[in-house]
């Protein structure tokens, strides 16, 4: 699996890695908020969310453009866009849980 992930087309590889990074950072922030209850982490989380959103939108468009131009196979493009979009329900879930404690 690791080999396949390393063989992804450059922009797709970056997209998958950045999606993983924003998931990891977001989850860490969420867990720190749950553990400490410090509202600083809510602000930080919103900052991460906005930043990740803009980066993901740009990457999403690049992946789609690459696919439409025929540079990327269908399954690879589908996988990359899926991984990018997967952060949306996760972010919604984190926001929902965090709002319960505010």
């Amino acid at each position: 699996m690791k080999i396949v992930l390393n063989r992804l087309q450059k922009q797709n590889g970056i997209s998958v890695k950045l999606a993983g990074l924003s998931f990891a950072v977001g989850t860490l922030d969420f867990l720190l908020y749950l553990a400490t209850g410090d509202e600083f982490f809510v602000g930080l989380g919103l900052g991460i969310l906005v930043l990740a959103f803009f980066i993901s939108v740009v990457l999403f468009l690049i992946v789609i453009a690459n696919f439409l131009l025929g540079n990327v196979p269908f399954k690879e493009a589908l996988f990359t866009t899926y991984v990018l979009l997967l952060n949306i329900p996760i972010a919604v879930f984190y926001c929902y849980v965090a709002l319960q404690f505010l």
Binding site: M1, V4, L5, K75, F79, Y82, L86
Partner: peptide, 17 residues
């Protein structure tokens, strides 16, 4: 639950087209 449909892609079970 999350990546099931991509298993064959992630493990290159289908012959590369």
């Amino acid at each position: 639950a999350v990546f099931g449909v991509f298993h064959s892609f992630l493990y290159q079970l289908e012959p590369p087209k």
